[in-house]
Each structure stands twice: as C-alpha cells, then as structure tokens.
Amino acid sequence: MIGTVPILKIGRTLLVSIQIELSDAVAEGMQNDVLAALERTNAKGIVVDISGFDTVDTYVARILAETAKMAKLMGARSVLVGMRPEVAATLVRMGYTMDDVQFALNLDEGLALLGHVIPR
C-alpha cells in the first residue's frame, strides 16, 4: 500500500494530501511514508490536508495524531488542515478531541502557521 498517498516537498515542508478513502492499511502506510520522507529530507514541517475525508473514525484519527507526535520526536511540526465540520463534530461527540494536534482552516493557513517556526 506504500505510495498511495502522495507526499510533496515544498521548501522545508512536507505536504500530504489525502484524497482517497482511508482504509486502516492506507493510513498505516501513510504514517510509514511520512516518517521515511522525514528521514530522507531535511523537512521541518508537515501539512496534512484532510479536506477530502468525509469519515474519520477514532482509529484513523489516532494514526494522524500519532504521526504528528512521531514527527515531533524527529524535529518536525505538524498541522492538520481542512477538517470538515461533520468530521469535527463526530470526533468530538465520540469524546476524541485530538488535544495535542495543531489545526488550520486550509492549506495556506497551515503553511503560514509553519512558516512562523520554520526558516525558509
């Protein structure tokens, strides 16, 4: 399943745009790919665009949150961008608030947020 989620590098930021329905395997593959890309490159930031997701269950949410934590251990900051209203409402109602993850409204804001902390 490796390679199903495209990862682009813009400056020192990795851009992960997930436009397909995320199965457990694809989510796990995404995590591996992102961490491998961090190892390979000198990226200091990750923007994960999840605007294409209409369902995020707690397993996928946990993989996203854990990926951010692992990236942090490797010296990179992460931002999740573009979460849909119904996805946010559903996760919160289940009691999952992703407290240790940073969010932004859209790609621009996500990049801007990281821009403050990452030198170009």
């Binding site: 573009g82 979460m83 209203p85 996805v87 996760l91 919160v92 109602r93 608030t97 969010f103 409204l105």
Partner: peptide, 12 residues
C-alpha cells in the same frame, strides 16, 4: 467545551 474543541479542530 465540545463546541470549543470542534472549532479548534477546524483550525479556528
């Protein structure tokens, strides 16, 4: 609190 948390997850 839930509303606040959900708004945060949108990036606001």
């Amino acid at each position: 609190l839930k509303t606040t948390a959900a708004v945060r997850m949108l990036g606001a």
